[in-house]
Each structure stands twice: as C-alpha cells, then as structure tokens.
Nucleic acid binder design. Structure first.
Length: 751
DNA sequence: TTAGGGTTAG
C-alpha cells in the first residue's frame, strides 16, 4: 500500500477510497480525513476518528483508517479495537487474520471481544480455531457468557461435534448456561450433527420450547437420522401446545411424509397452506410435489406443479423422479425434454429412471447426450452409469468411466467404489474387483456385501465365506442381502453343511428372520447337492407361501438330477402361480427329453401349442470396442451377419476335429435330429462367441452376458473352444458366471 | 431450521 509510505499526499492517495463511499458520506469523510492528517493527538482528532470508524462500511476503509492512526501515533482505546475486530469478524468480506492480528495486540480483551473473535471463526467455518480461542480464553481466566456458546457451536461441523460436543456440554453446565434457550438451541444443533439424537432430544425436552426455531431444529435432527415418525410426533405436539409451525416446519414434516409415503399426514400438512395459515413459497410447493409424487399421487403433484407461479429445476426434477418411481419412464422423459434447463441432478434422475426399468442401452444413450450438452456428471451419475455397465457386462465402458472419474476428479466416495466393485464382478473381472476393494479407504456394509455376492457368483465360494468372516471382524453388521450372498456362496460351491449352519445363525446371531428368498437359497443349496427330498421338505415347512423363486429352484435341481416326479410337482405349482411362464414349460420339456420320457414330452408340447405359450428368446450381449452387440437365437439382423455365420461354420469344423458331438438332449422342438443340431448351433451365445472371435485379437478374453441359463451343448462347446483357440471365455448367465479356460469351466459343470 | 439424485439379491 504505497500511501502508507507517503502520508503527506493523503488527499490524493485517498481518492479511490473516497469514491467508494456513498455520496451522503463523502463530504463528512473528506473533512474528517483531512483533519486527522493535519491535526496531532488532540481531543478533536480522537473525536473525528470515532466518527470515521462509526461510519466506515468496508474492511478496506477500516484498514486505511487503522493504518492512519498508527502513522499518526494515535493511541487506540478499547472501543476502536472492538470496532475493528467486530467489523473484520462479522462483515461479509471479513478478514479474520487481520482481526486476529489486532486482537493479539490487546492486553486484556473483554468477553465481548473473545466472543466476537469466536463468532468470526465460526462464520468462516473454522471451528477448530474457534475452539482453540475458547480454550485460550479460559486459560486467561475470562469467563464465558451466554453469547459465547451459541457463537462457538454455530460453526461446528460433524467431525468437531463428535470430538468436542460432549466436552462443551460439560462447560455449559459448569458455567450455568444449560437453561439458556439460545445455548440449548446450539446444543441440539451440535448433537444432531454428530448423530447423538437422544442427547439432542434430552436437551430439547428440558427446554422451554417457546420458539418455533427450536422445534424446527429438533424435527430436522430426527429427519437426518431417519426418525420420521418422531418428526411427526413433534408436529402433533406443536399443535397440542398451539405453537404455530413455520414454513420450514411444514417443509421438514413433508420431507418425512415423503419418506414414509404417508399421504394422509401429508394432506394434513397441506391443509395449513390451503387454509391460508401459512403462505406457500417455491420451496414449500416443491416439498408438496415431492410428497404427493412419493405417495404415487402424480395427478395431485402435477396439479400443484401446473398452478405454481414460478418453477425451478427442482420442481421439474421432482416431477421426473415421481414418474420414474411409478415406472412411467416415458412420461418422465416427456417432462425431461420440456425442461427449460437441466443440471446434473435432473440428468441423473432421468438416467436412473432408465436404469430402474432395465433399459440399459437408453442409460448409455442419455449419458452420451448429457456429455454432448456439456453437463459434467458427478458421483451420482457415475453410479448409475456403472450400474448399466454391470448389467450389460460392458467392461470397456466401465473402465472408461473409471478413468473419466479419475481424470475429472469426480468424488470417488464409497458409493462409487461399491459400484466399481459390482461392475467388475458382473463383468467377471474378479482380480480388478479385489484390487478396487483393497484400495477403498472407507468400506461399508454394501462394500462387503458386494464382495461376498461377487465372489460367490464367480465361483469363489470359499473366498466369499472368508470375506464374510472378515466383515464380522470389521464389526460391520450383515443384512438380509449379505446372507443371500453367503448362502449363494455355499450353493455355488456345494457347501451344504456350512449353508445349513449359516441359515440358522442368521437368526440366532444377527436377528435376521429369513425371508422367502433365503428359503429359495436353501432349496437351491440342497437341491443342487442332490438332496431333493430335503429341499422339498424345506418348502413344505417354510412359514410363508412359497413363490416362483422357491419352486423354480426346486425345478432347476430336478433338471440337474433328472428327477421327473418332483419336477412335475414343482412345475405344477409354478404354473399355478404364473400360467404364462414359458420358461417353466421349457425346463420341464428339458427334463422329459433328458430322461427320455418321450410320451410326456409330446403331451406337454401339445399343451404348449394349444395354449400358445411363448418361450423367452435366448439373448446374448457382447461388448466390442465399447459398443454392446446383441444376438438372439438364429439372429440374422447383425450388419456382419454373413461373416458371423462363416465363422460359425469354421468353428463347428474345428470343434468336430476336436471330437465334438452336438448334444441336443435339451431341444424339445418336434423336429429331426439334423434340425435340432442346427437349432443348437444357432444359440445366441454361439453367435456372440463367433462374433467375438472374429472381432478381437488373439489372446483377448471374450465376455458374454446371457439372459437365460446356458444350455448343456453351449457349455460343452465353450469349454472346447477355450482349449482349441487358447482363449479365455467368460459367460455370465441368469444366475452365475462360467469362466472357461483350457477346456474346463469354473462352475465344475455344476449349474 | 427448509425442497430434487446414488451402492448389495431375485
């Protein structure tokens, strides 16, 4: 600041400073500045200084006056220091370093100044500095007053609340401020921050509760910890005590209603607006839309949306989310296309809609549009995209997404990490999933569960169970889905006794009552191990009505172990639940064919024809150079169709040279043997393999995702091909992975 | 003190 070096030319150097003042102040300021520059330490100079300080509006003005007083050797009194410190601490462009500098020059700052400094640190979100200053204050025997604690606690974040919250509470009691309403309010805020909701509630319950803000804080605290019922109870209590809720109260309570999908209560809150007791604004209207949308009342939500004077991007996104939640993704898209502007949240809401409806290709298409629109994806978007990659088995794209998050420094939190683990497993990349897991700085229940499930479906049952043991060591609590993974690990590796004992311990050790899916796992476990009667007994004894998963598991076991009698029982039950389920007929046909029950097969085929039952077409996906190609059985729609069929012929020749005989035992069409061979030969996974072989360089892994179970013939062919062409083939079918290498499969032919 | 988005199975 050159003017400090040349004080005599003050009138010129101060020019920019003077221009920044409002016109009404200009004359007085000019006069006073000049009088300071000309006078010495006369009483008049001090008077002028007081005037200047009272009227200065910005930190810059203040600093200039301060430097001037130093120049002139004016001794400052406490009121001047106070003015400097409070302006630096509390104004918008404040300067805490400057405030601290001045503060440290003071011999015995009073409690007001300590408080002001603490308030300043809280305002700039430096709670650690505020706490050290508070400690310093105590060391210098300055007693805190009723302002100290609210100022101190206002700036607390979660970390420091956990670290010092309780200690500060002790001080509050010691200094006798535990009954001060403002202090109580701050305490509730801090306890809510660190999740100690019961402590917050204790403070709240002893407070006078006269002010609506304290109610709002408590309701918001309950919301943050997911205790929405408690929020509603408090709202009831407010009505009883005739405390008029504010707009904020209604927004918070509505948020709870949305979570609980409690339409009746939501309507009661809405009544406050309808009766004119609370005047609505944009936020409240958005909350109302969200509540009605969450409760599936899209017509009401749209009614409010249409009546609103102003709508923002949140209003639009809430409508989109509403349609997505009731599965009307096309309606959601209509509104999405109409939006005047979209941010990353709106894009993600729409992308997520496609993901929830299993429209994975639309997910990727919309993601490309999002990039073309120059909207930067964030962690939430990445999670959705990785979900689509996982479902499509699109490893290349998944890898690209990972590189993208690293390059653009998208927050790589536990959600993104979990999604990456899941994506790698669903693409059969076990090693990369493991690496991801070890790299994650924070792991949660979902991380462990993703590992257990992923290892299990990829055939590493033992490792999955070890992972479960580590999870318990890490004091992470398993949930019902973790146990589905654990039981699946036992099933896929044939660990029957372990499975039985886990089924018992999930209740005895973790209080998780098995649901219908867990019973399905047990039926699968026992059935695949050949204990079909025991499996049937599980179904008979289970406390709920068995569903299609349970009977389907039994039917699958009957196929593996060729148990016609039990298969018929299971199929009958399945068809009662889902008369149009083509897969059941197919499986039963497979079993009749495999057991050479030709009469039964013929009868069943007739029934299929009469009822017009359609089989779900087999469909295989393969990703080549970042594009996903889809094949159905006998597909001729691919642009490179001719070359694919040529490759298929070449493949068949090579297979026959290696001693391959087609296995048509699972073909139940009423056609000749040659046609059966033809049909088997055109299964979707064989077309995908042929395409993979011709489109990728030697030695690369071929990955395929199939919607149905692999047939015996395709499984056999894949094993042979892995040896003939020295290629690793990974096929993900409906329930598990097959890693084909050197002529054998990771499933040990047990699927 | 307030409104819109994400992870595990079948």
């Amino acid at each position: 600041m050159p003017f400090l070096a040349r004080p005599r030319k003050t009138h010129l150097l101060y020019a920019p400073f003077l221009f920044s003042l409002r016109p009404t102040h200009t004359r007085a300021f000019t006069k006073n500045v000049i009088s300071i520059t000309t006078a010495t330490t006369s009483p008049e100079a001090y008077q002028n200084l007081g005037f200047l300080l009272r009227n200065c509006k910005t930190i810059d003005q203040l600093k200039q006056i301060h430097s001037l007083t130093i120049q002139k050797g004016l001794a400052l009194d406490v009121s001047v220091y106070s003015k400097i410190i409070s302006l630096c601490s509390t104004s918008r462009g404040g300067d805490m370093e400057y405030a601290r500098h001045v503060f440290d020059k003071m011999l015995e700052p009073n409690v007001f100044l300590w408080n002001t400094m603490i308030k300043g640190y809280s305002r700039i979100n430096c709670p650690n500095d505020a706490v050290s200053l508070y400690k310093e204050m105590l060391e210098k025997n300055v007693k805190p007053d009723n302002y100290t604690f609210p100022f101190l606690l206002k700036g607390f974040n979660r970390d420091i609340s956990v670290e010092c919250g309780k200690g500060i509470h002790g001080h509050i009691c010691k200094f006798g401020f535990d009954c001060n309403e403002f202090v109580q309010h701050s305490m509730i805020h801090v306890y809510c921050l660190c999740g100690l909701i019961n402590m917050a509630r204790k403070v709240f319950d002893t407070s006078a509760k006269g002010d609506v803000i304290i109610w709002n804080t408590m309701i918001s605290g309950h919301n943050k910890t997911g205790q929405f019922q408690e929020s509603r109870k408090l709202f009831d209590e407010m009505e009883e005590k005739q405390v008029l809720p504010s707009l904020v109260t209604l927004v918070s309570v509505l948020s709870g209603c949305s979570e609980l999908k409690d339409l009746d209560y939501g309507k009661r809150v809405h009544q406050y607006v309808k009766d004119g007791r609370i005047e609505s604004n944009l936020t409240l209207n958005n909350s109302l839309i969200n509540m009605y949308a969450a409760c599936g009342q899209m017509n009401v939500a749209l009614g409010i949306f249409c009546d609103m004077k102003d709508r923002d991007v949140i209003s639009w996104t809430t409508i989109i989310k509403g349609f997505v939640s009731i599965g009307q993704v096309d309606q959601a898209r209509e509104y999405f296309d109409l939006m005047p502007q979209r941010d990353s949240i709106s894009w993600t809401a729409m992308i997520d809609g496609y993901l929830k409806m299993n429209q994975f290709k639309d997910v990727l298409l919309l993601f490309r549009e999002m990039q073309a629109a120059n909207v930067k994806p964030d962690g939430f978007t990445i999670v959705s995209i990785l979900g689509a990659c996982a479902n499509l088995g699109a490893l290349e794209l998944g890898e690209w997404v990972r590189a993208y998050t690293e390059k653009y420094k998208i927050e790589n939190d536990v959600y993104v990490g979990n999604s990456l683990i899941n994506m790698y497993f669903k693409c059969g990349e076990v090693e990369k999933a493991r690496m991801m897991f070890h790299k994650m700085p924070r792991k949660d229940k979902f991380t462990w569960t993703a590992m257990i499930v992923g290892l299990a479906i990829n055939g590493h049952g033992r490792e999955a169970l070890n992972m479960f043991a580590y999870m318990l060591d890490a004091l992470e609590t398993p949930d019902e889905i973790t146990y589905i993974g654990v039981l699946g690990a036992c099933t896929h590796s044939g660990l029957v006794n372990e499975g039985r004992s886990f089924f018992i311990s999930m209740t005895t050790k973790h209080g998780i009552e098995p649901n219908v899916v867990h019973y399905g796992c047990m039926v699968d476990l026992l059935g695949r191990a050949g204990q079909i009667k025991e499996a049937y007994k599980v179904i008979k004894d289970m406390p709920m009505k068995p569903n299609t998963i349970v009977w389907g598991a039994l039917l699958g076991a009957c196929r593996v172990h060729k148990d016609v009698e039990m298969a018929e029982k299971a199929a009958k039950q399945l068809l009662q639940l889902e008369p149009e389920n083509g897969a059941v007929y197919v499986l039963l046909c497979n079993i009749y064919a495999a057991c050479k029950k030709w009469d039964n097969l013929r009868d069943l085929r007739n029934i299929i024809m009469q009822r017009g039952i359609k089989k779900t077409p087999g469909c295989s996906l393969i990703e080549i150079n970042g594009s996903v190609h889809e094949f159905v059985s006998g597909d001729k729609s691919h642009p490179q169709c001719q070359a694919i069929y040529l490759k298929l012929e070449e493949m068949t020749e090579d297979l026959k040279l290696a001693g391959y005989l087609p296995n048509t035992s699972e073909v139940f069409l009423d056609i000749g043997e040659e046609e059966k061979e033809n049909a088997v030969n055109r299964h979707s996974e064989k077309l995908a393999i042929a395409f993979g072989l011709m489109s990728s360089s030697p030695g690369t892994v071929i990955r395929i995702v199939k919607n149905l179970r692999m047939c015996v013939d395709c499984h056999h062919v894949a094993k042979l091909l892995s040896k003939i062409y020295e290629r690793k083939l990974i096929v993900r079918d409906r329930t598990r992975f097959h890693h084909f290498r050197q002529g054998s499969c990771s499933c040990k032919d047990y699927w």
